[in-house]
Amino acid sequence: MIINNLKLIREKKKISQSELAALLEVSRQTINGIEKNKYNASLQLALKIAYYLNTPLEDIFQWQ
């Protein structure tokens, strides 16, 4: 199981879903879906999320 901390980290950094989506060149709905565990981010997208949030990938998506 993967624990998804994207919403928590994004909100801590005061970045909206729309802002993050624009940086990543995806839709806001994609970010929303990832945060609600409706969609799994591809490895490429997960790495981009970590880069733009300046946060280690394993802090955003944790295996349990």
Rank of each mutant, 00 (worst) to 15 (best):
M1I: 12
M1P: 10
M1E: 06
M1R: 10
M1N: 08
M1K: 10
M1Q: 10
I2E: 05
I2Q: 08
I2S: 08
I2F: 12
I2D: 04
I2G: 05
I2P: 07
I3L: 13
I3E: 07
I3M: 13
I3H: 08
I3S: 10
I3G: 09
I3C: 14
I3W: 07
N4I: 08
N4E: 02
N4D: 02
N4L: 09
N4K: 04
N5Q: 05
N5M: 07
N5W: 09
N5Y: 07
N5R: 08
N5E: 03
L6V: 06
L6Q: 01
L6P: 01
L6I: 06
L6A: 01
L6W: 02
L6S: 00
K7T: 07
K7Y: 04
K7L: 07
K7H: 07
K7A: 11
K7C: 09
K7V: 06
L8R: 14
L8I: 14
L8M: 13
L8N: 13
L8W: 08
L8F: 11
L8G: 10
L8P: 07
I9W: 07
I9T: 05
I9N: 02
I9L: 09
I9Y: 09
I9H: 06
I9M: 07
I9S: 02
I9D: 01
R10M: 06
R10P: 01
R10L: 07
R10V: 04
R10C: 12
R10T: 03
R10K: 01
R10H: 03
E11Q: 13
E11K: 11
E11Y: 06
E11V: 11
E11F: 07
E11W: 06
E11P: 01
K12T: 11
K12C: 12
K12D: 08
K13I: 07
K13F: 11
K13A: 12
K13M: 14
K13E: 06
K13P: 01
K13Y: 08
K14G: 15
K14L: 09
K14A: 10
K14E: 08
K14N: 14
K14P: 02
K14D: 08
I15T: 04
I15Q: 03
I15N: 00
S16T: 13
S16V: 04
S16I: 04
S16C: 06
S16A: 06
S16Q: 05
S16L: 05
Q17K: 06
Q17I: 13
Q17N: 02
Q17V: 13
Q17E: 04
S18V: 11
S18Y: 11
S18A: 14
S18Q: 13
S18I: 11
S18K: 13
S18F: 09
E19C: 08
E19T: 11
E19N: 10
E19Q: 14
E19S: 10
E19L: 07
E19F: 08
E19W: 06
E19V: 09
L20F: 06
L20H: 00
L20C: 05
L20K: 00
L20P: 00
L20D: 00
A21F: 03
A21P: 00
A21M: 03
A21I: 03
A21C: 04
A21N: 02
A22D: 12
A22S: 12
A22C: 12
A22R: 14
L23H: 12
L23F: 14
L23Y: 14
L23N: 08
L23T: 07
L23S: 09
L23I: 10
L23M: 14
L23C: 11
L24P: 00
L24A: 09
L24Q: 00
L24W: 01
L24H: 00
E25M: 13
E25S: 14
E25D: 14
E25N: 15
V26T: 06
V26S: 02
V26M: 04
V26L: 05
V26I: 10
V26N: 01
V26D: 00
S27F: 03
S27G: 06
S27H: 06
S27W: 04
S27N: 08
R28K: 13
R28W: 15
R28Y: 09
R28T: 15
R28P: 15
Q29R: 14
Q29E: 15
Q29L: 09
Q29G: 11
Q29N: 13
Q29F: 08
T30L: 15
T30H: 11
T30V: 15
T30R: 10
T30M: 12
T30K: 08
I31Q: 00
I31L: 12
I31E: 01
I31P: 00
I31N: 00
I31W: 01
N32S: 14
N32F: 05
N32V: 15
N32Q: 15
N32H: 11
N32I: 15
G33C: 15
G33D: 15
G33S: 14
G33I: 07
G33N: 15
G33W: 13
G33F: 12
I34V: 05
I34W: 04
I34C: 03
I34D: 01
I34A: 02
I34F: 03
I34H: 02
I34N: 01
I34Y: 02
E35V: 02
E35C: 04
E35K: 02
E35P: 02
E35D: 02
K36T: 15
K36M: 14
K36P: 01
K36W: 07
K36A: 13
K36R: 13
K36H: 13
N37K: 09
N37Y: 07
N37M: 09
N37H: 10
N37A: 07
N37T: 04
K38S: 10
K38L: 13
K38W: 12
K38C: 14
Y39W: 12
Y39L: 15
Y39A: 09
Y39K: 11
Y39Q: 12
Y39R: 13
N40W: 10
N40C: 15
N40L: 11
N40K: 15
N40D: 09
N40P: 15
N40I: 15
A41N: 02
A41G: 05
A41V: 15
A41C: 15
S42Q: 05
S42E: 06
S42G: 10
S42D: 10
S42M: 03
S42N: 09
S42P: 14
L43Q: 08
L43E: 07
L43K: 12
L43P: 11
L43Y: 14
L43I: 11
Q44I: 10
Q44D: 13
Q44A: 14
Q44P: 12
Q44F: 11
Q44K: 14
Q44C: 14
Q44R: 13
L45Y: 01
L45Q: 05
L45E: 02
L45F: 08
L45V: 06
L45M: 09
L45P: 00
L45W: 03
L45T: 04
A46G: 10
A46D: 00
A46R: 11
A46F: 06
A46K: 12
A46T: 05
A46E: 02
A46M: 14
L47H: 10
L47Q: 13
L47M: 13
L47P: 00
L47I: 12
L47Y: 10
L47R: 13
L47N: 09
L47W: 08
L47T: 12
K48T: 04
K48R: 13
I49C: 04
I49E: 00
I49H: 00
I49V: 05
I49P: 00
I49F: 04
A50F: 04
A50D: 00
A50P: 00
A50W: 03
A50S: 11
A50T: 03
A50Q: 03
Y51V: 08
Y51K: 10
Y51R: 09
Y51C: 11
Y51I: 07
Y51M: 10
Y51N: 07
Y51W: 10
Y51E: 09
Y52K: 05
Y52P: 00
Y52E: 05
Y52V: 15
Y52H: 12
Y52F: 14
Y52C: 09
Y52S: 05
L53H: 03
L53Y: 02
L53S: 02
L53N: 00
L53K: 01
L53M: 06
N54S: 11
N54Q: 14
N54V: 06
N54I: 04
N54E: 14
N54H: 10
N54Y: 05
N54F: 05
T55A: 07
T55L: 05
T55R: 04
T55K: 03
P56F: 05
P56Q: 06
P56Y: 04
P56D: 07
P56G: 05
P56H: 06
L57A: 05
E58P: 08
E58F: 10
E58G: 13
E58R: 12
E58L: 09
D59F: 10
D59N: 09
D59W: 07
D59R: 08
D59Q: 13
D59Y: 09
D59K: 10
I60E: 00
I60L: 13
I60A: 02
I60Q: 01
I60F: 03
I60R: 01
I60S: 01
F61K: 01
F61M: 02
F61V: 02
F61T: 01
F61R: 00
F61A: 01
Q62E: 09
Q62G: 11
Q62F: 09
Q62I: 11
Q62V: 14
Q62H: 09
W63E: 04
W63H: 05
W63A: 05
W63K: 06
W63V: 07
W63T: 06
Q64S: 14
Q64D: 14
Q64Y: 10
Q64K: 13
Q64W: 07
Q64A: 14
